[in-house]
Simulated scan of single mutants.
Amino acid sequence: MVNQVEPKLIKPLYEELQKERFVTLATVDYETGGPNVSAISWVLAKDENIIYFAVDNRSRIIENINKNNHVVINIIANESTYSIQGEANLKEERLKDVPLKLALIEVKIKEVRDVMFYGSKIVQEVQYDKTYDKNAAERLDRQVMDAIRKA
C-alpha cells in the first residue's frame, strides 16, 4: 500500500486537532541550518487548511520560523503517523486572555502525508500527564485553547 498524500487535513486528523494533544514540530534552526524538533500540545486545526499553535513568545521556534518558515507537524492519530508540511508565520505576538506570554503561530498546510511504515498500524497513541498542579494546568489549558479558538 502506497502512503497517502493529501493537500489538506483529512477528517480524522481535523477532528483530532480540535483538542489539546501531543505533536512534534520540526523547524529549521536559525543558527545551524539543521533540523530542530520540539514537542508541543497547544495546537488546533482552524479548518482543513490551517493549523494554529501557541508557544512561549521567547521560544526558539519563533526565531526559527522568522528565518525559515517551512515546518512539519508530526501527529500520531487514526492508527497511523502523519507529516503535515506547511508554511508558518507569527499571527499574534501575545495571545489575549492568557496569563503567560504566548505567541500564536499559523501554519498554512501544503501537504499531509501518511508516513507510517508499510504493513503496520499504531495500536496505542502517546499519552502524557502534566507534572505540576493539576487544577492550574487544566485552567491554563482551557484559557490557551479558548484564546486559540477565538483567533
Rank of each mutant, 00 (worst) to 15 (best):
S59W: 04
R149N: 11
N135Q: 15
I73K: 07
I62C: 06
E15T: 14
L13W: 07
A39Q: 11
E125W: 03
V72W: 00
V112H: 11
S59V: 05
I73V: 14
Q143I: 00
Q127S: 14
G34F: 11
E106K: 15
D114M: 06
G119C: 14
Y14P: 01
E48C: 03
N64F: 05
P12Y: 03
S83L: 06
V123W: 01
K11D: 13
K19A: 11
P12T: 04
L9T: 10
Y14Q: 10
T131W: 08
N89D: 07
L102S: 08
E6V: 02
V144A: 10
S120E: 07
E92Q: 12
P12G: 06
L9P: 08
S41K: 10
K91V: 01
G33D: 03
D133W: 10
K46T: 04
A151E: 08
D129C: 04
S80I: 01
L102H: 12
R58Y: 09
Q143R: 09
A77M: 02
D133S: 15
E20S: 10
Q85V: 00
N66D: 05
V5Q: 11
V55P: 10
V2E: 14
S83F: 06
Q18S: 03
E79I: 00
L44M: 13
T24I: 03
E111S: 14
K19M: 02
I50C: 07
V123N: 09
A151R: 02
P12D: 04
P12Q: 02
A45D: 07
D47T: 07
I10K: 09
Q124L: 05
Q127N: 12
V37C: 07
K134H: 11
